[in-house]
Design a protein around this nucleic acid. Sequence first.
DNA 1: GTCTATATGATGATAGAC
DNA 2: GTCTATCATCATATAGAC
Lengths: 207, 207
Amino acid sequence: MTSTRGNPGTDGTDGARGARGPGRRPGRTETREAILAAARELFAEKGYDGASLRAIARSAAVDPALVHHFFGSKEGVFIEAMRFPVDPAVLLPRIMAAPRERLGETMARTFLGVWQDPDRRAPILAMLRSAMTNERAAALMREFLTSALFARAGAATDVPRLRLQAAAGQMIGLVILRYVLRVEPLASASEDEMVELVAPVLQNYLG
Amino acid sequence: MTSTRGNPGTDGTDGARGARGPGRRPGRTETREAILAAARELFAEKGYDGASLRAIARSAAVDPALVHHFFGSKEGVFIEAMRFPVDPAVLLPRIMAAPRERLGETMARTFLGVWQDPDRRAPILAMLRSAMTNERAAALMREFLTSALFARAGAATDVPRLRLQAAAGQMIGLVILRYVLRVEPLASASEDEMVELVAPVLQNYLG
DNA sequence: GTCTATATGATGATAGAC
DNA sequence: GTCTATCATCATATAGAC
């Protein structure tokens, strides 16, 4: 769900649509997605400021001006590439459906599962890296966390905001050490080891 | 201790040193420190890639070429500006001198105390921001964490590496939410509130 | 020690040909 | 839709005058 490619209506061959008269050009089929894929990868690797439009175009084997043609500006590419890989509105209820004494384990497994999958990891990592050095991206991420995550989780439970944020902090720090700094043995630990490690902590915060 | 300014022998007025013959020029007294202060601030704010030599020079009210003259290259400025604000070799023993059942609280208070102080925070924040998007900086930080922190702490206790790193992850994620993303209410929480929040978690990892 | 001048190259954005 | 050409900026780094 909410996978990286295949927005409804924009993928594939345009099927048997035929001549539709004015209004809708047949284009945007292919290179657009290629550009977005390259953008996600580069933003994830270098962050917003570090990934250049030209590098994205180069990686997509496309002319830089074409990127502009499609998305208008670098920021246009970014927000389009971020279109969310992970929707808290679907993940949160799934977590909170767990029995209360296994909330920590469930949250750990869900969160780490998303990060384990390169396709879902890329946009989040891009957001995180960008937010560290770019104020606009930081504001975007703050807004996302606050309204999509903490507000939602806070409304559905009686866990104080501070505790929700401490739990989020635990997971953010963990993935930074694992996927960005690649500190051993954490970087090579199995998902099960990590769940075992942090589940009690999350349980402490949320339980 | 290990404060930001005042490396022995390089600060102040050169005292009553007088004519010392060849060998040692009287220079480097003032502008050098001004450049380093500006560098720390800008690296902390924008990370290694985002902070330009020119911006550093501008902020220090100095010619860009002078920065080169002193430090040779941008990387030279960086490592000089990083010269450590915080020495685990002095902080770790202090933490581990605490009674075992208060390890978590002591670590939390020590760590948060460092981050509360802008002068000690700046170089660490600079390192962290830089490490997120620059591979050289990431390697530097990984090396620092591994050998100066985890190895030392691992040698002095029987706490497994994974647990040490999970504890570090908790604190890193917390300061990112607090100082970089500035998520509320965490960003405005008092030191005591934060200690109360995370001390049990650290105690769980280290105890 | 401090500066000007410059070499060299990348960036985001735009205008407009085909 | 796709491209060339170009603008205006900014970057790191160097050589060398004073």
